[in-house]
Design a protein around this nucleic acid. Structure first.
Lengths: 219, 219
DNA sequence: GAGTTAACCAAACAACTGTTTGACACAGTC
DNA sequence: GACTGTGTCAAACAGTTGTTTGGTTAACTC
């Protein structure tokens, strides 16, 4: 049977070759798979199936499983920077962070996995960038201390870590949440409720910025 | 002509048979291995090597990898119950929980892994028991609310979760901690400092029990 | 249209993982 | 000493995993 020959005009609906699209499909599928099962639990075959592409293309486009993992880490690192909004009052920052479980659940899970899989600064490509990102929150805490709104005995770095860990709880401790609250920890309903609660607690701690209406911007 | 039967080591090691000891060796090694790498990342061979026993004994004594995992989960569940001390003031409870990362780092990591690997109440053998264990803390928060020491708008379950997540941060977010504080998140030095900070924050929230004699603090 | 390159695929592949097999050794009993 | 049941082991096993190979096809160039 003679193969019907060439079509000059591109057909969007048909399966045509599109390396960029394929790369993106793989990356998206990899994010979902790694987020769901972690590095060790993720399966190349499952990623390919999710992406709807041949398994071999993962080796073709990326440097195997490990290279693919590095690629999605790099990708999320770029996106996460967008989350940072200097000058945002702390309660609002925390709120946004908690709601990230709704907007980018994969990213939050990825960060949680990487914490448990962590094997030292040298193996963590995000080690430097991340601390830079958090420095903003820490400075914010320091400013509140300087303004006398927070006891000096509080370690700003520790408090920031606590807030971050608390914000990630719906992702890191879903089994505990489901047990004590009976709600679905991944549901929008719960996550929004939880974010609200987080803000209440943050305010209770006195983390409200000195001038809540006019955040001071400085570059 | 049939080959003569191969002789094993002519000089067998002077090792006493001790099934109970072997079981325990395997369980200890399994705790360490599962805590270090999670279920998917753990290797039966590595557990056997850690325990210094033949790999096959894992199948002999337990029901394979999965059975072994269930066995150590069961084991930790029993121990964790000891941690509960009804009537302990909340800040002290939290402090103890944070220090658990020092006493039983494997148990804390196990709980963290199980959160990410969580696939619903039906697959979680600890689902029921855990919520019971936490009920004490939740009731404590409720009591504080009733005593007017904590705003009624605070959801006791959410606050308990936040505290728990915050207490586990040195285990769940070591990469973040190392980045922002420069300290080793698994060191006794840091964990004790962090536990102290947690207590400070808890008191700041007004979680001090009504009758507990605590020195007044001013910032 | 011939030729070239790059995207893609199916199957083969080697390495690894957990489990099973069959044999052996120790301890207790007769 | 022979017998028996259980603890222990090395090796074989079957299933899975990630990667490589070799070939096929679309798109692009001349």
């Amino acid at each position: 049977m003679p193969p019907s020959k060439p079509r000059r005009s591109p057909r969007p609906q048909e399966r045509q070759r599109d390396p960029d699209r394929t790369r993106r499909l793989i990356l998206d599928a990899a994010s979902a798979e790694f987020a769901a099962h972690g590095y060790a639990g993720a399966r190349i075959g499952a990623i390919a199936a999710r992406a709807g592409v041949n398994q071999q293309l993962i080796s073709y486009y990326f440097d195997g499983k490990e290279g693919l993992y590095r690629a999605i880490s790099e990708r999320w690192r770029e996106r996460e920077t967008e989350l940072v909004a200097p000058g945002t009052p702390l309660p609002e920052q925390i709120r946004r962070y908690a709601l990230e479980a709704l907007r980018n659940p994969d990213a939050v899970r990825l960060m949680a996995w990487s914490g448990l899989e962590y094997a030292g600064p040298e193996t963590d490509p995000d080690h430097g960038p991340r601390s830079k990102r958090l420095q903003g929150s820490i400075d914010e805490v320091r400013a509140l201390q300087a303004a006398g709104r927070l006891p000096a005995e509080v370690d700003p770095a520790c408090l920031t870590i606590m807030l971050m860990a608390a914000a990630m709880a719906p992702t890191t401790l879903p089994h505990v949440i489901e047990g004590v609250s009976g709600m679905d920890p991944s549901s929008a309903e719960f996550i929004e409720h939880y974010a609200d609660q987080l803000v209440i607690v943050a305010r209770l701690l006195g983390l409200e910025s000195a001038d809540s209406a006019a955040p001071s911007r400085q570059g």
